[in-house]
Computed example of a mutant assay.
Amino acid sequence: MVRLNKEASAMIFQENNKRSKPNTIDLHGLYVTEAEFYFEKTVEEIRDREQPLRVIVEKGNHSDGNTPKIKPAICALGERLGMTVNVDPRNDGCLVVNFK
């Protein structure tokens, strides 16, 4: 079961990101732990770049109680990793992560 979940999350991540712009990742549709995994992996790959990372987390409209789960988890993780994480003022389903 664990292997199948891992394969499914990889497929979701790949499908969401096959047309993404550079320095943008799309995490919606993943479970929180999966989103955190792909966020950390992406940060490791691009941390040396000066451009901010845009992280699509969606608004949580399809979550229980319409409460976002990925957004607060990625905000907290980014801050623990020493980054500044802000909600995009033009799209509250997107985070802007700046590397310090």
Rank of each mutant, 00 (worst) to 15 (best):
L4K: 06
L4W: 02
N5R: 03
K6I: 12
K6F: 07
M11Y: 07
I12P: 00
Q14I: 01
Q14R: 07
N16E: 04
N17V: 06
K18C: 11
K18R: 14
R19V: 10
S20V: 01
K21I: 03
K21V: 08
I25T: 01
H28I: 04
H28F: 05
G29A: 11
G29W: 11
V32G: 07
T33F: 13
T33C: 07
F37P: 00
F39W: 08
K41H: 12
T42C: 13
E45P: 00
R47T: 06
R47W: 14
R54P: 00
I56W: 10
I56Y: 07
V57N: 02
K59L: 13
G60C: 08
G60R: 06
H62T: 06
H62L: 12
S63A: 14
S63M: 14
D64L: 15
G65E: 02
G65S: 05
P72T: 09
P72F: 14
L77Q: 01
L77S: 01
G78I: 06
L81Y: 10
L81K: 13
G82R: 05
G82P: 04
G82I: 05
N86S: 14
D88T: 04
C94Y: 04
L95S: 01
V96A: 01
V97G: 04
V97H: 03
N98A: 09
F99P: 00
